[in-house]
């Protein structure tokens, strides 16, 4: 019977093969097989795999963003630490400079004081020595002058009065 209808349909030429009922069972049978195969291929292999790929990508992106966020925070922390270290170092340097300056100033003051004292002592000594020398010199000059005056007077044939010579020399030396 199938053969009859089929040949009839072919004989009809360009009719509508879609309406040839004899081929329906064949089409439906193979269609159902194809659909079942596609369904299993998709539901068992393709769709879980693509879902996994998309999830993995989403995870990767999320992780990367989180990592970037972490790194940013770390960078900020590092910057803060650097700033702090810099400020500390600057403070420390200023403190050290201050201390050093104070220590030097103290040393300097002590040294200056000592030097002043020494200078004063030396100056006093020198003053004393000069005074002595000056006193010695005047005495010597007076003696020399007295002697010289006596000798001169004697040489001129006179007798020198020791007291008047001394008085004259003393008066002269004061002048």
């Amino acid at each position: 019977m199938a053969t009859d209808t089929h040949s009839a349909a072919e004989a009809a030429g360009p009719g509508m093969p879609q309406l040839d009922i004899t081929t329906f069972s064949n089409q439906i049978f193979w269609l159902l097989i194809a659909l079942v195969v596609i369904f299993f291929v998709l539901s068992r292999v393709a769709l879980p795999r693509i879902a996994a790929i998309l999830a993995e990508r989403q995870g990767t992106i999320t992780n990367d963003i989180a990592a970037a966020e972490d790194l940013k925070v770390k960078a900020q922390e590092a910057e803060a630490a650097y700033e702090k270290a810099l400020a500390d170092a600057r403070g420390e340097a200023q403190r050290i400079a201050g201390e050093t300056k104070a220590a030097i100033q103290a040393d300097l003051d002590v040294a200056i004081a000592r030097a002043d004292a020494e200078i004063a002592a030396k100056a006093a000594e020198s003053e004393k020595a000069i005074t002595e020398i000056r006193a010695g010199a005047q005495e010597a000059i007076r003696e020399v002058a007295k002697d010289t005056a006596k000798e001169i007077v004697a040489a001129m044939g006179g007798k020198a009065d020791a007291r008047s010579v001394t008085a004259a020399v003393t008066a002269r030396m004061k002048g």
Binding site: A2, H6, T22, T23, S25, N26, Q27, F29, W30, L31
Partner: peptide
């Protein structure tokens, strides 16, 4: 063409 015939379908 029967149900299980291999066709162009």
């Amino acid at each position: 063409i029967g149900m299980f015939t291999l066709t162009n379908v």
